[in-house]
């Protein structure tokens, strides 16, 4: 049985990618298991400057999922290069996916240009879809023109494949994906979290301080599958599919919808061994559904 896939020209031993924001910079999970078993992982969303993010509380539980309003807390790109990447090097020998966010096109360009020189990085995942920051993040991912502008600008300063991570909080995901492809994107990643909220009955106020946040977890899987399915029909570049993935069966389902690789997010926060368990379970599930090569099933539901 063969679990190998190729994402934008880079081979991965399996399609499993812990999603950005649920896996830090990897080394904390490396204390629990050898993270080299992963296909790769997408590191914590990095911006030009250091950020604390939004006020707390910034977590709320939901049925079959959770809301976060962290707001891109990260140490800033210089610190990531100086401190986080060297620490990661001691426990991860595969190419890592660099998740990048910004508040202007210039910030995306600045951060990507700096990271492009780092040999540990295999791909860029350009996040135009964070629902938790104003005047940036998601606002770039909700119009085809803005998403294309970021994509084209980042492509100009990078040599590595650029995968654009899209927001599901839009009316027409296909037009945005196509605009990114036309602007030179090497891949599309979807979906980021759905904008949601919870209200506390005792205080009669929203649970998270930022009022709204990104909803993730198994509850969003049908939305993610639908969007991956639609985008697969519309673009030629590979898709990284994610949203509510927590089992090997989910991985197969997402690949049938059209994903070449699959991100696992919220599941990591409930079970730190979630990705390890999925990877170890994949051969069993492949056998059950008579899958010899995982690559054979990409887009198989179409």
């Amino acid at each position: 049985m063969n679990t190998k896939v190729k994402l934008c020209g880079i081979e991965m031993s399996n399609p499993i990618i812990p999603a950005s924001g649920t896996f830090g910079f990897g080394y904390e999970f490396a204390e629990l298991y050898d993270i080299n078993i992963l296909g790769t992982f997408s590191f914590k969303g990095t911006t030009k400057d250091k950020r604390f993010g939004n006020p707390t509380p910034r977590i709320a539980e939901c049925e079959r999922g959770m809301i976060n309003s962290v707001g891109l807390q990260n140490p800033g790109v210089e610190d990531v290069i100086k401190n986080e990447l060297p620490k990661l090097k001691t426990c991860f020998s595969k190419p890592v996916m660099a998740n990048v966010s910004g508040f202007s096109v210039d910030e995306y360009v600045y951060t990507c240009e700096k990271l492009d020189k780092e040999s540990q990085i295999g791909w860029f995942e350009v996040n135009v879809s964070c629902p938790n920051v104003h005047g940036g993040g998601m606002s770039f991912g909700t119009s085809p023109e803005a998403a294309a502008e970021v994509t084209a600008a980042v492509k100009k300063v990078t040599t590595k494949p650029v995968i654009v991570k899209l927001s599901p909080n839009v009316t027409d995901i296909v037009s945005i994906a196509k605009a990114c492809e036309a602007a030179g994107a090497d891949g599309i990643s979807l979906i980021n979290t759905l904008l949601g909220m919870r209200i506390d009955l005792k205080s009669r106020k929203p649970v998270v301080a930022n009022k709204m946040g990104g909803f993730s977890g198994p509850a969003i899987k049908p939305v993610a599958l639908r969007m991956v399915y639609q985008v697969y029909d519309a673009v030629k570049i590979p898709i990284v599919g994610g949203g509510g993935i927590s089992t090997a069966e989910d991985v197969i389902e997402m690949m049938l919808a059209g994903a070449t690789a699959v991100e696992v997010g919220a599941a990591n926060l409930v079970d730190p061994f979630a990705c390890k368990n999925i990877i170890e379970d994949l051969p069993r599930v492949m056998e059950k559904y008579r899958i010899e090569n995982l690559t054979d099933i990409i887009g198989g539901a179409h």
């Binding site: 604390f52 993010g53 707390t56 509380p57 910034r58 977590i59 962290v70 807390q73 926060l269 730190p272």
Partner: peptide, 26 residues
């Protein structure tokens, strides 16, 4: 603080201190 993971992965429970940002859970 309200926590997501409880082991330092999600940054849900961060706070500011004199010595920098810290995760309540970690």
């Amino acid at each position: 603080e309200r926590m997501g993971c409880g082991f330092g992965a999600c940054m849900g429970c961060s706070c500011k201190t004199i010595t920098g940002y810290k995760r309540i859970c970690k």
